[in-house]
């Protein structure tokens, strides 16, 4: 067994089973922010494991096989067994290609995602400000359109957009709750969290966990914004506003998954209160997140660290 294979197995395991484990977990809606952190960490842990697996395979055939081995001495033999893979050059080539591909893909997708998102945000906010009118009292830009809609645009000029349809359909208290929800999105920088999840999904789109992370981070950020809004407002206002704003004024585009998520939010807002997670469970979950961060790094570095340590201990 080689470290490279272990890392790939870790990526495959977390990347497939992780989606089901987290999807079934009931605590996610009780601690949305912690759940977002867990999804993002798990997704990027998988990417890191694949990248490091390639590096590990390559390192075996080059540095450790050559000059470095003289420094470390006899222990490298043992070390080699760990990293060892048959067909040195071919494996090293494969490893380098894998790492290079993951790195290049991640870099390219990050740049294009961030650029596209910024451009859309700038363009959308500018158009909204041009055709709409600012309402300083509401802290929102009003756009003349019959469809009730409320959303925020992140970016250099964070903007909350409200249609006249929404203004007519909501009462002032509902409107205030909706605006608090939207401001929570902007204050929590939820668009950045969504972008981080989307980048991971696009790098390795075939892994269920990375697809789940993309969808779940969006859903959980709604729950987090609901929590922020209900802290000082009646949750019933948010629940009734949900129905009003989801109802189409005219037949238009509609998303299949939207209803399930919205019904979940209504139950969460008005159903029996879920107790917040206890401190013990929170700490355990934080430890799990830390483990997701550390596992790929430790796996990749452990043999080398052991070798260096043993190499310096005389007679070891």
């Amino acid at each position: 067994m080689t470290i490279g294979a272990i890392l790939l197995a870790y990526a495959a395991l977390v990347g497939t089973l992780g989606a089901r484990t987290l999807g079934r977990a009931r605590w996610t809606s009780r601690a949305p922010l912690l759940a977002i952190g867990t999804y993002l960490t798990a997704a990027w842990s998988v990417l890191a494991a694949v990248g490091l697996a390639g590096l590990t395979l390559a390192v075996h055939a080059t540095a450790l096989g050559g000059g470095l081995s003289q420094l470390i001495g006899a222990c490298v033999i043992r070390l080699r067994d760990l990293y060892a893979t048959p067909g040195g050059a071919a494996v090293a080539g494969f490893g380098l290609t894998l790492t290079g591909a993951v790195l290049a893909r991640t870099a390219f997708i990050t740049v294009s995602q961030v650029r596209a998102g910024r451009q859309q945000a700038r363009q959308h906010a500018q158009t909204a400000r041009m055709i709409g009118r600012p309402d300083p009292a509401l802290g929102a830009t009003l756009v003349d359109h019959p469809q009730p809609a409320a959303y925020c645009v992140a970016g250099p000029q964070p903007t909350v957009v409200l249609t006249t349809g929404a203004l007519a359909a909501l009462n002032p208290a509902q409107l205030d709750a909706v605006l608090a929800h939207e401001r929570a999105h902007l204050a929590g920088r939820h668009h950045q969290l969504v972008t981080v999840a989307r980048i991971a999904r696009q790098v390795l789109p075939f892994l269920p966990l990375l697809r789940a992370a993309d969808a779940q981070v969006t859903r959980l950020s709604e729950l987090h914004a609901d929590d922020a809004a209900r802290r000082s407002r009646d949750p019933g206002l948010l629940a009734t506003a949900l129905v009003i704003l989801a109802t189409p004024a005219t037949p238009g585009p509609a998303l299949a998954a939207a209803a399930t998520d919205a019904i979940g939010r209504i139950h969460r807002l008005l159903g029996p209160a879920e107790p917040p997670l206890g401190p013990v469970r929170r700490h355990l979950l934080r430890a799990a997140v830390a483990a997701l961060v550390l596992t790929p790094v430790l796996l990749a570095a452990a043999p080398a660290a052991v070798a260096l340590l043993l190499g310096r201990v005389p007679g070891a």
């Binding site: 809609a149 959303y151 992140a154 909706v178 939207e182 668009h191 989801a246």
Partner: peptide
């Protein structure tokens, strides 16, 4: 990505 709706 850049837009966050209250509900769709």
């Amino acid at each position: 990505t850049a837009l966050a709706h209250f509900v769709l």
